[in-house]
Every structure is written in C-alpha cells, then in structure tokens.
Amino acid sequence: MRRAATTLLATLLVAAMAGCSPPTAGGQSAVDKIKARGQVNCSGSQGIPGLSRPDEKGVWRGFDSDICRAFAAAVLGDATKVQFTPLNAAQRLPAVQTGEIDVLSRTSTITFTRDMSIRFVTVTLYDSDAVIVRKSLGVTSPAGLNGKTVCMQGGGSLVETALSEAEAEYRMKVTRVYFDSTITARDTYFAGRCDAYITDGLAARSQLATVAKKPEDHALIFVGSGVEPNGIAIPRGDDRWYDVTRWTVNLLIWAELNGVTQANVDEMAKSGPEQVRRLLGGDPAYGKALGLDPRWAYNVIKQVGNYKEIWNRNLGDDTPIKADRRLNRLYTEGGLMFPFPWD
C-alpha cells in the first residue's frame, strides 16, 4: 500500500510540474509580448567597441545596441528598456528561433540560408571583411597571406567564406585557428599566436583603434567581395513585429535625409514640413497601422537620434574608431542608404 501511495504521489508531482510550464502562445506577436513585458530583448555581441559592448557602467554602447534602443522607444516610448543578451556567432540563430531574443542586431550578414531559418528585416549597415596583419610581415595584399596563420571566430561566420574566396582567387592556402569568440581570436592574434586576424571591417577598425597596444604596427587588408550587408532579424511568421522593426529602421534613415535630429525634433514636430509633422505625431494613422503610440516616431528620434547621429556617436569622428561611412552614407551623398517613402 505504501509503495502504491508513493508511486501515486510521484505521478501527481510529475503532473504538477508539467502543469507549471504551460504551452507558450505561439501565435502572439512579439509586439504584444514586449508591451506586456515592458522591455525589448535584444542581442549583444561578445564586445565589439562601436557596435555593441557594455561600457564601464555595464550599459551597452554601440551602433547595433542603439538600433535596439530605437525599437524600445518605438514600442514602449522608452529607449532604455532593452535587455541585452551577449551571443556568439553560433548562438545567435537559435536565440532568435526560440524567442529568447525579440530581435537580432549584432553584425549579422543577411544570407539566403539564414533568411530561411530566421527572418531578416532590413539592412542596417554595409560592412566588409578585413584582415589585421602585422606590418613587419610585409603583407600588402590578400595574396601575401599564403602560408600564414589566421586567427578567427568559428561557428560559421561570414568572414570564413570571405577567406575561402580569397584562397581560391589567389590560389593560396592559409592555416586557420578557430575560437568560439571573436574576442579570444583577437587576443590570441595580439599575443602573437597568429600572423593575422580576420573579422568584419568595422570590427577590425574598432579593435585596432581601441584594443591594439600599438595600432601603427598593424595594417588592414580588405578581402572578399567587399560588401557584407548586415541586418536585423526576427523570428519568422511575425508580420506585426516585422512592420515595426522595418519601419523604425526606415525612420532613422528618413530622419537623416530630412534633417530631423535629436536637437530639432520638437521644433520639427511643430513647424517642420507637412510630411515631417505628420510622421512625428501629427497623423495618428502611422502609429495606428503599426499598433504603436501616435508619437512613436517622435520618441525614437528624440531618444535615440537619426541614422547619422547613431553612427557618429558610436563609429564616427568623435570616437577613436573614426570609421569611414562609405556605403552607409545617404544615396544623396554617394552611399546606399535611402528611406522608403512614407506614402
């Protein structure tokens, strides 16, 4: 009798435990979840200055991080309500698929295979692939890397493809050393384990500017096709969240083109051109269509700034990185950035 009772008790316990984890509602949009939760769950990288890295106070700083803040400002009206989760290259896709993060904003190149498993929304910046190499080796082009050892992040990051392409193009062979973190790869390079370190162009520039003890000892060589379209991604099948993220990024570029800045957004909302006034809260139809507050666009620009402001704050001439905007300039200035019309 006693054994029977124990068995029954155990069964009840199992049943109770199963009951504690109710099935998550798969049909609910991330927008509703974010509103209910009061914060946006966003990806962080493993620490690339200028793109995403926590500062001395533990606040995430960088271009990719600020894109997340723009979403928080749009949905919640408060750019600070973002929870960042640091992820490495191999962790990021599953994190989006499982809903651990609402949005991936972390130096991720848009590719066919990735877009088939998560949903890329739009390009946030055009990057390239770059090799940091010691000047003392006398390497000036990718061909000079023949027989050299290259430290890099494993886990299927796109720099690997770029390196393989360069190997085929210049009929050469390099020895690879893979790490699970691009930071470890960088440190091993700077310690002398490798002749070179390959990563994204902006990341390479930022590592040289902020981490290298003597930046003048190292040279940058660009490899691969030259363009890595980095984008933000969300889980598949969430059209509402797709609308919000896609048009929030569009807003940032639009604001730059129309000269709407953090400083003048109040004035612009009152006395700017008609289209500007409408978008900044004058016409509630925008917010209504997206399921957001009528002043969502105003909140984003007021709290985060436009594309140019985000760039300058994190990567521009005011920072040690001083990255050239190149393709990330507005189309009116010779770049590839242009906003879709708000008609």
């Binding site: 896709l93 599953p94 499982t98 295979t113 494993g154």
Partner: peptide, 23 residues
C-alpha cells in the same frame, strides 16, 4: 576544447547549427 580553439565535435555541431539553422 571549445575554450582553447581546438575543433571538437561540439564546436563543429555549433557551426552546423549556425549555418543550417537546425538547432
């Protein structure tokens, strides 16, 4: 091995998961 840059089975599976999305 993952921590010290040697490619073992787990590292390779991480890469496969990342590349194919079949987590």
């Amino acid at each position: 091995a993952l921590a010290v840059g040697y490619t073992d089975f787990l590292t390779i599976m991480g890469t496969i998961i990342n590349k194919t999305g079949h987590a």
